[in-house]
Design a protein around this nucleic acid. Structure first.
Length: 925
RNA sequence: GCGGGGGUGCCGGAGUGGUCAAACGGGUAGGGCUUAGGACCCUAUGGCGCAGGCCUUCGCGAGUUCGAACCUCGUCCCCCGCACCA
């Protein structure tokens, strides 16, 4: 059954090469002074569930690049680790404990975790350990050329010691400080909550209101506003007459606020004690003094005032707030709106209401009017000239200044409130905004640190390049980052043990750890003191002293130091788009703080997202295809090939079942074509078409190299896979295949494809008679000696000619009995060459020979400009020879006979005059 | 609002000044092969045409140019991110 051996048994091939690769050490990389190193990493996964094809793409890109670079002769390090620190798994474990149906469905159903394992998922660490094992298995099956000797979990004690070392340095440099910060907070979980931990209100933003304190005797009435500058246009205050307000002692003052506001203030670190109640309707009519102009401001009733929004006391600025204007009008109040922005005579709110045709307080268009006016005034407005101290300032500036000035005199404060409510945690508890007091921060706001980070970015290559401005923006935008958490898995914060280092903050410079992890893993964590890391990573101190202190042998330490120096800095960091503003920016920040300039990372590649049949992939919605299922149904190489050819890495890719299936068919064809080439035996002499085919494969090699250097996997495959597939197809249609040609073609082709479909290519490489791994074979480069433009010109001549004949046959509906071809005469070839060189009509006409064609020359020159004539102009004999060689083929294709005439002897319809170089005149009988 | 990206044929998506009615892939239709189907191969897929041609197309409008999908300006629309979270 020799035929069976040629069948494309994907599973058997994969199994065979997984074993061979893992039995050898092909992908393990150690320092080698003779070879140039190439070090790339991809964001290590947070394994809280199974891998889907989106993850498959993320990890296949670096593998393709690693394989490409390895074949180019670089010493490539491609490591992998597991980011298991963080809190999401705690929630998952909690929900599994509670037997939450949705969670059980995802883990038991979608991820197919067997019941006997699932029952232990009440322990968060079990979850991450289970899935990091599963990830590892999937990655091996995908054929990733990872150096597994460096694998680690982010809770590995040796790694924790590394994180501690990093934080010690940051602390010494004064880059971490204790402070306060408002966070979205769940009283039920007693912890800050992130977006994905919310049941409701995930779109709510944190607004910072200015509280302005109005006074009456000892009482303070704190009105909350987003537009403090409008205090100058204040006519009255609003309270809800149906609400019972409270009197509360707030940091020594007695405030009149809503009951809800009192509770919120506690979270905002105010000392709050409720001392009495006061009905809204009893507040109405009372007059309060404003702190700036010392004017008496009356309180009016308004039912639209929501006690659960900020303080429950609202400022009324009828000239600039449509709501206030209309409410005042409804009350038939005699208070007059006071314009404080611009110099116009119109009252802006009034005008807006009229223009939009708003009739009463319930009109939904009021919302729009408010937003529009806010936008206009905030964007372009200037304070009216009459306002003392603030007149003429832009609204933007005045807003800040009013708030600052009032805060300085103790007449204003800040109040944080959600822009939408309610905000509800996954545990069902309503969230508040809390100011954390003894929170630790990474001071990304530090000017010098930002400056250094910008320098780091300047020196880096970003793919795609347009994202560089985005990074720059993020570096400026990053404020201090709360880097400690109360719960989760992770490393204890060295300066305050009740805190853990927050998971984004513990994985900023882990790329350096990979370079030494295979040694460090074997050392007892207790010995890994800061001195140890100072020596191996920064070269501080001497190995002998530190060896005595840490009990790590001197030689061992020196070896580790050398390995770090060999690999670092990192050449490329690959990661998904959503990490630009955090992980990737943090990486730059922390490298500049810890490592000297020459160790800063050199490049970043940012990935797009994944779609499934046109819709966004989402594990929680079950809208994913698991990578293991995809591999089982299609084979790993097909999955890889599809993911790499569907889109460039930074673009969104779309997993479509029918396209994946078609990719599988194409790959099978590749396998069969190469097999057929191997089996072919003959001694056909070399022809132009053979030189053409070989030229094509080397041309593709050039394009593929260039594309992969720029991480363009799709473009690379366009050249090395789809185009070459079509070229081979054309070749086989065009002539009898020559064994030597197709073998040479295959030798190059298989190596070109090896980074993309390594299993298939290893198998074919072996069949081609090689004893070494294709994974380590030399990657083909462009070969200009083999890609000769005239070979292309000759083949294009045939292709174009066929199209022309085809076209004529269709239009004329002639059944051909004979086709005549007339070649362009020498003078036209000469003319084309002159046009190509940029000659003008006058130049050409100087030539006596050309002058003979005085009518035609200008016509041709008008029609064909410099860039429109072919690069290569064949001689009359070459063109004739090419057509002669293709004659049999053309006669077969059109099922007729062919007459090729250098000089027209039989031309009844005068078609020869149409002939131009590489485009013969055609007459069909 | 701020920042980034984008609008191309039935669809996805190349193309960034002339060789563009527009690569490649998909879909559809016709044909070949086959007992049949699948696989594979060929052809067609904006309109017209009296032979390789002409006309109209690359969100919309204007401009630069001998010449624009590609450059400039304006305009409309769409997508993504905006944090204490991996």
């Amino acid at each position: 059954m020799s035929k069976m051996a040629e069948e494309y048994d994907v599973r058997a091939i994969e199994k065979k090469w997984i074993k061979r690769w893992s039995d050898s050490t092909v992908f393990e990389a150690g320092p080698d002074a003779k070879r140039t190193k190439f070090y790339l990493t991809v964001a290590f996964p947070y394994p809280s569930g199974s891998m889907h094809v989106g993850h498959g793409r993320t990890y296949t890109v670096p593998d393709v690049i690693a394989r490409f670079k390895r074949m180019q002769g670089y010493n490539v390090l491609f490591p992998m680790g597991w980011h298991v620190t963080g809190s999401p798994v705690l929630g998952i474990a909690e929900r599994i404990k509670k037997k939450d149906e949705k969670t059980l469905k995802i883990y038991g159903g979608l991820y197919k975790v067997p019941p006997e394992i699932l029952k232990d998922f009440t322990n968060p660490e079990t979850i991450v350990r289970h899935f990091s094992n599963e990830y590892h298995g999937n990655m091996v099956d995908m054929g990733y050329s990872i150096d597994w000797t460096r694998e680690f979990l982010s809770i590995t004690p040796q790694y924790s010691k590394y994180v501690e070392w990093q934080y010690k340095h940051l602390h010494e440099q004064g880059l971490i400080k204790m402070g306060e910060h408002p966070v979205r907070y769940c009283p039920g979980c007693n912890n800050p909550v992130g977006d994905h931990d919310l049941l409701q209100g995930d779109k709510a933003e944190v607004n910072d209101f200015t509280i302005i304190k109005f006074r009456m005797g000892d009482l303070v009435l704190p009105a909350a506003t987003l537009r403090p500058e409008t205090i100058f246009g204040l006519t009255n205050m609003w309270v809800n007459p149906n609400v019972t307000y409270v009197k509360a002692k707030v940091d020594g003052e007695t405030w009149v606020i809503s009951r809800e506001a009192a509770e919120k203030l506690e979270y905002l670190n105010k000392n709050v004690e409720i001392v009495g109640e006061i009905k809204g309707k009893d507040l109405v009519g009372k007059k309060w003094t404003d702190p700036l102009l010392k004017k008496e401001i009356p309180i009016l009733p308004a039912e639209f005032v929501n006690p659960d929004y900020a303080t429950g006391i609202v400022m009324s600025v009828p000239a600039h707030a449509p709501y206030d204007y209309i409410a005042l009008k409804d009350l038939k109040s005699d208070l007059k709106p006071l314009v404080i922005i611009g110099e116009g005579k119109d009252v802006p709110a009034e005008k807006m209401i009229k223009d939009m045709g708003i009739k009463d307080q319930k009109d939904p268009k009021l919302e729009e009017a408010t937003a529009q006016l806010y936008k206009e005034e905030h964007g372009k407005g200037f304070m009216s000239k009459w306002i003392p101290g603030y007149g003429g300032l832009s609204v933007r500036v005045a807003r800040e200044k009013v708030a600052d000035d009032l805060r300085k005199t103790g007449d204003a404060d800040i109040f944080y409130e959600f822009s939408e409510s309610p905000v509800v945690c996954r545990c069902g508890t309503r969230c508040f905004i809390k100011i954390l007091k003894d929170q630790w921060f990474l001071e990304y706001s530090d000017k010098d640190w930002k400056k250094k980070t910008h320098q780091c970015l300047e020196g880096m290559e970003i793919v795609p390049p347009e994202l560089k401005t985005n990074f720059s923006y993020f570096i400026d935008w990053l404020k201090d980052w709360a880097c400690t958490r109360r719960v989760g898995l992770g490393t204890r914060f060295p300066y305050d043990n009740k805190w853990l280092i927050e998971p984004l903050s513990d994985s900023t410079i882990y790329m350096a750890f990979y370079t030494i992890s295979r040694h460090v893993k074997k050392i007892d964590a207790a010995k890994l003191t800061p001195e140890f890391y100072d020596y191996v990573l920064l070269g501080k101190g001497n190995s002998e002293d530190i060896s005595k202190k840490t009990c790590v042998p001197k030689q061992e330490m020196e070896k580790i130091r050398e390995e770090f120096l060999y690999w670092y800095p990192l050449d490329w960091r690959l990661s998904a788009k959503d990490l630009v503003g955090n992980h990737l920016s943090f990486m730059m920040f922390h490298h500049t703080a810890i490592y000297p300039k020459e160790m800063w990372p050199r490049g970043i590649v940012v990935f797009g997202m994944g779609l499934l049949e046109g819709n966004k992939m989402s594990s929680s919605k079950g809208n994913v295809v698991l990578l293991s299922d995809a591999m089982r149904d299609n084979g790993s190489d097909t999955v890889r090939l599809f993911l790499m050819s569907n889109a460039e890495p930074w673009q969104d890719f779309d997993w479509r079942e029918n396209l994946v299936k078609n990719t599988g068919k194409k790959l099978r064809q590749f396998y069969e074509q190469v097999n057929a080439a191997i089996a072919l035996e003959n001694d056909v002499p070399e022809r132009d078409i053979d030189r053409w085919l070989i030229g094509r494969v080397y041309d593709a090699a050039g394009k593929t190299n260039a594309a992969l250097e720029a991480f363009q996997t799709r473009k690379a495959l366009q050249a090395s896979f789809f185009d070459l597939m079509n070229d081979l197809l054309w070749y086989s249609r065009r002539c009898d295949m020559r064994a030597e040609t197709v073998k040479e073609f295959s030798e190059v082709w298989v190596r070109l494809m090896a980074p993309f479909t390594p299993y298939t290519c290893e198998e074919l490489w072996e069949k081609l008679g090689h004893k070494d791994y294709v994974s380590l074979a030399k990657y083909p480069a462009a070969d200009h000696a083999k890609t000769r433009p005239e070979d292309n010109a000759k083949e294009d001549l045939i292709k174009n000619l066929m199209e022309d004949i085809q076209h004529i046959l269709e239009i004329s509906k002639i059944k051909p009995s004979r086709i005549y071809l007339y070649l362009a005469p020498e003078w036209k070839r000469k003319l084309f060459a002159q046009i190509r060189q940029g000659a003008k009509i006058a130049d050409v006409m100087k030539d006596l020979e050309m002058k003979k064609y005085g009518k035609e020359v200008p016509q041709i020159m008008q029609k064909y400009r410099k860039d429109e004539v072919p690069e290569v102009i064949l001689t009359l004999d070459d063109e004739y020879g090419t057509l002669k060689e293709a004659q049999k083929f053309l006669e077969k294709e059109f099922n007729t006979t062919l007459e090729i005439q250098k000089t027209p002897t039989e031309d009844p319809e005068n078609k020869a005059r149409f002939a131009i170089p590489q485009k013969p005149g055609i007459y069909i009988k």
